[in-house]
């Protein structure tokens, strides 16, 4: 039996991504550890993404608050505004939006960078220079995205809440103290933890897919462009799939 082309393609791609992930874990606990390169990548991937994440987070909190207000007024529960917004941000919108922006910036960047290193034989050159390019390039980047995205999400959440505070104060009056008292009073451990755990998976997916696409880039500049593009598309898709899976799991575990 011959499978249609696209199904065949999908299955073989899934297989080779799985092999890539297996290879990642195989090399992760094997010296030599590229600590310096890891730290560098954390800086490049994490710190340099912070301004973008901060701006979008702030706007997101502000806009969300302004949009929610009329509905809440209609139901006569305007005072619940901080609670509603903070729940929405911390549980869902913060992690997902941050991850999507992060994917757009980082996954495509990694895809293009590794892709061009591949086609210009820089990866081969590393290999003959006594360096395991998989460790040097892939393991460090994937670890960096996995570690940095949760941190960025926390920061983004906090900044969003400040944005939201501003939104609350455009038409009403709440002191910062009261606002955050209300917010932290509402937020449970079970709101924060699952949301943070899923960002670890988001970060991993973004890193590994960017690296996979770049590392397996086909010859030529066109191949590099395609890798970068596919990296963003696939990792964005994965973010939603992971989101869906985690919400099911937390539901089953009764954490909702």
């Amino acid at each position: 039996m011959k499978l249609p082309f696209y199904i065949n393609n999908f299955l073989s791609e899934t297989g080779s991504i799985s092999r890539f992930i297996t290879r990642f874990f195989g090399q992760l606990f094997h010296p030599r550890y590229e600590i310096r390169q890891f730290i560098r990548q954390c800086y490049l991937i994490g710190c340099l993404s912070f301004p973008l994440i901060a701006i979008t987070g702030f706007i997101m909190g502000l806009v969300l608050t302004m949009q929610l207000r009329p509905s809440l007024i209609a139901y006569g529960v305007e005072s619940q505004l901080p609670i509603m917004v903070s729940l929405a941000i911390v549980r869902e919108i913060g992690p997902v939006i941050t991850a999507l922006i992060f994917a757009g910036k980082i996954s495509s960047g990694i895809g293009a960078e590794l892709g061009s290193m591949k086609v210009t034989e820089q990866i081969d050159a590393m290999e003959v220079s006594g360096t395991n390019p998989f460790k040097y390039l892939v393991v460090t980047r994937v670890l960096a995205t996995t570690l940095m995205l949760p941190l960025l999400t926390v920061l983004s959440d906090v900044i969003s809440l400040y944005g939201s505070y501003l939104g609350v104060n455009i038409k009403g009056h709440t002191s910062l103290q009261l606002y955050f008292f209300q917010v932290f009073h509402t937020l449970q451990f079970s709101d924060v933890l699952p949301a943070l755990i899923k960002t670890v998976f988001f970060g991993f997916a973004i890193g590994i897919i960017g690296c996979y696409k770049g590392y397996n880039s086909s010859k030529g500049t066109e191949g590099v462009g395609r890798s970068a593009n596919a990296a963003v598309v696939i990792s964005s898709l994965f973010i939603f799939i992971i989101d869906l899976v985690t919400v099911q799991i937390t539901d089953i575990l009764g954490l909702n």
């Binding site: 960078e113 290193m117 210009t120 034989e121 050159a125 590393m126 003959v128 220079s129 006594g130 360096t131």
Partner: peptide, 27 residues
Amino acid sequence: VGFLFQSNALYDSMTVRENLEFPMRRH
């Protein structure tokens, strides 16, 4: 065994000095 690549394969994120340093530091 040195290898001169067809496409040079210089690391484009590194300076010339770092390019030369890399194989020495590693090997």
